[in-house]
Design a protein around this nucleic acid. Structure first.
Lengths: 115, 115
DNA sequence: TACTATAGTGTCAAAAAAGTAACTAATGAG
DNA sequence: CTCATTAGTTACTTTTTTGACACTATAGTA
């Protein structure tokens, strides 16, 4: 929904032109995206594993956020034709390329935000 | 049947414990925060100037986001006791310390997101 | 036959975020 | 006296996001 969303197109376009960071935030801004990238990176690569790691996120949200990450090509979704179904998530090259930047941001957070 | 973590608070706390990036995103995640930091950094340091730069943001949103940036100590708000009122915004040290990280993120965006 | 497991989807309702538009205060200009 | 200016605030409405929870499919197991 977010991608082709109903939000005023010209606003989005203008903002993207003015602040290209907006594109980045569209990709990373979701409430659980960064946590998901980390967990997938750590090898929690299946839906049920991610749910176990984050018991407070609903299945609907998890599915939604994963779908968006996949559409933004940060995460790869590999389906095995088995029963019960098996799906494995992993970071794409693009997803991996984000990790160092996120780590810098994380380091900033460590220094500058208190829990 | 443990209705675990039913309150907002425990969700936030749990999430912050699990993903400290969440704290960073709380500070930067707002729809216009990063753009605002950039513009203020560039010297568009007054309410009306910022509005001119971003004609699509409502006064309410602008005021709200600036207030949050101020509360998070990324932005300094200096009030001059004049009439008509004058208020000047600038980045705090903390706000400035964020710039290099944002630039890295920005560079990633340049490489990996298409406008 | 019933039950389990996986990986979700669909629908409706509630909550949160954002937009709209009117309003404020004090002063100088005309 | 009226208007313009700056930097917002407030009340109300609409839109968007999130939550709760029921439901699906298929094979294997008891």
């Amino acid at each position: 929904m977010r991608k082709a969303s109903s939000t005023n197109f010209s606003n989005e376009a203008e903002l993207a032109a003015i602040c290209p960071m907006h594109n980045v935030m569209k990709v990373l801004g979701g409430r659980w995206k960064i946590a998901l990238l980390y967990f997938i990176h750590q090898g929690h690569n299946r839906f049920s594993l991610l749910q176990k790691k984050m018991p407070f996120i609903t299945t609907k949200m998890l599915s939604q956020q994963l779908k968006e990450l996949e559409q933004d090509e940060l995460v790869l979704r590999k389906i095995y034709a088995e029963m019960p179904p098996r799906v494995e998530y992993s970071l794409t090259i693009k997803g991996q390329s984000l990790l160092p930047v996120l780590e810098d941001l994380y380091a900033w957070g460590e220094l500058h935000t208190k829990s």
